[in-house]
Design a protein around this nucleic acid. Structure first.
Lengths: 134, 134
DNA sequence: TGCCACACGTTATAGCATTACGCAATTGAT
DNA sequence: ATCAATTGCGTAATGCTATAACGTGTGGCA
């Protein structure tokens, strides 16, 4: 159960995401990493796949983009459903967890005998800073 | 406040979605409508935009695909947040509404002074039928 | 009549993701 | 030691999703 170390490519992609203000598309990451030898989209997608498996990176479906996980969790444990608040002005993403929502979702699924594999919750809107500055 | 009639293109796209078993991609719709004179993606996307404005069609972000709204609601009123249960086996989509979830989401946003514009909730998994037939 | 708004049609292009191929390094069992 | 299986890597080509930028036609209305 030793946690395998990240490969060079995976570290580069993760660093790019961690250093960014907001979510990045795969092709934006590719451009940022050309100087480090990246030449093809697949290099990015492969690293992203692994990082997502490890819970270090999330994909934002409504944006076709990726963010580094910002929660202080132990990444080797499942930490339930994540909801994202995405600011349409500044691009900032806030990662949220809420037991109440999980509970309701679990009920909704249960009533229908639906086996949940993965849940996506994304809230688009305007963060406090950006809605203040109108 | 008379509700404008749909155009020919909009009706064709809506019918395609209504007649389908599950969600359709824009390009799948395009192919289905070639016999009716459709030749370019934009014809589909423009109709979809309008239908979504009217609340007759939903976009599934995690699938890059579209479904006809199945709820018996009055479409001219906002009917809050919709959650989708999407079966990965048969493709069927179940549209759900839940006041409890809306409440929790509203609290999460409120605490952060985040102004919500649009909320996406999509649950991927296996429906009753498909998980029975294992 | 002139203006405006809107739907439409066409071409081209941009943006996102995967398939398919082959090579190299690692691991682990025989 | 060697073989097989696995895993990551690199490259090229392709496919899927969505929009930009044109121009046309029509209906309402001052």
């Amino acid at each position: 159960m030793a946690t395998q170390p990240l490969t060079r490519n995976q570290i580069l992609v993760l660093d790019a995401l961690t250093g960014a203000e907001g979510p990045l598309s795969a092709y934006t990451i590719l451009d940022k990493l050309r100087d480090h030898g990246f030449r093809a989209p697949l290099q990015v997608y492969r690293a992203l796949d692994k990082l997502r498996e490890l819970g270090l990176v999330h994909r934002l479906e409504s944006l076709n983009a990726f963010v580094a996980c910002t929660q202080p969790h132990d990444h080797h444990t499942d930490h339930g459903v994540t909801a994202f608040a995405i600011c349409e002005d500044c691009g900032q993403v806030d990662e949220m967890h809420d037991a109440g929502i999980e509970e309701r979702l679990s009920v909704l699924a249960g009533v229908r005998h639906f086996k949940t594999e993965k849940t996506t919750i994304e809230i688009r809107g305007h963060c406090q800073n950006c809605s203040a500055a109108e």
